[in-house]
């Protein structure tokens, strides 16, 4: 079970600060460097840059956009979301809870003869079972989304980039994290400059 939960959250473990020391690609990673970020004027430029970045071999990449872009998730290499699985588990738990609660009260705890109907009147249990299924699935969706996203997160290193506030207005950002095996201080920034970004900068932790 521990292994299962571990795997469930594996990809969403909080991004660690890149460990200082020798890199796969050679060179040293300065401490306090979280990643390199590039700003784009529109979604097409961003998507283009994402494809180029992935092609270059970078894997730990994040993108920030003012509105959802459907194909971005696939382009950036994030696998399918784990939220649906949590929703399913929540729904099953809710259904069992809803039916179990009614069964327990009507059959075991307070059996009442109502018009000669069986104690286990499962037909009339269905609406509440259904409602509990939806309720628990909904709660699982919201909480699962928050937990898997690592929210609430009062501070994130990208906030140290002054222009990043534009990500919620009209700018599109692409960040390569320092913990990417291919990340090299300086080189990665220069690579991002070739992608047609309007601004690039380091992200300090």
């Amino acid at each position: 079970m521990k292994g299962f939960i571990g795997r469930l959250f594996a990809r969403h473990v909080k991004p660690e600060l890149g460990t200082p020391g020798p890199r796969v690609s050679g060179g040293e990673l300065p401490p306090h460097l979280y990643g390199a970020i590039a700003e784009f004027a529109n979604a097409d430029a961003l998507l283009h840059a994402v494809h180029a970045t992935r092609k270059e071999g970078y894997q730990v990449v994040e993108a920030y956009t003012p509105y959802p872009i459907e194909e971005l998730n696939d382009a950036i290499g994030h696998g399918p979301s784990r939220v649906p699985l949590l929703v399913l588990l929540g729904g099953i738990a809710g259904g069992l809870f809803g039916f179990g609660l009614q069964y327990w009260t009507s059959v075991i705890a307070y059996p009442l003869n109502i018009g000669g109907r069986p104690y286990n009147s499962w037909v009339s249990f269905i609406p509440i079972t259904f409602e509990c299924t939806i309720l628990f699935a909904g709660i699982a969706a919201v909480l699962g989304m928050l937990v898997l996203n690592g929210l609430p997160m009062p501070y994130h290193p990208v906030f140290s980039v002054p222009r990043f506030q534009l990500a919620s207005r009209d700018r599109f950002f692409l960040m390569i994290l320092a913990r990417d095996p291919r990340f090299r201080a300086g080189d990665t920034l220069r690579f991002m400059e070739t992608l047609g970004a309007s601004h690039v900068s380091d992200v300090e932790d």
Binding site: G115, R117, S121, V123, S124, I126, P127
Partner: peptide, 12 residues
């Protein structure tokens, strides 16, 4: 389908 069944079954 369930609404119809539930109401008629409960009413009996």
């Amino acid at each position: 389908a369930l609404s119809q069944f539930l109401i008629i079954w409960s009413g009996n």
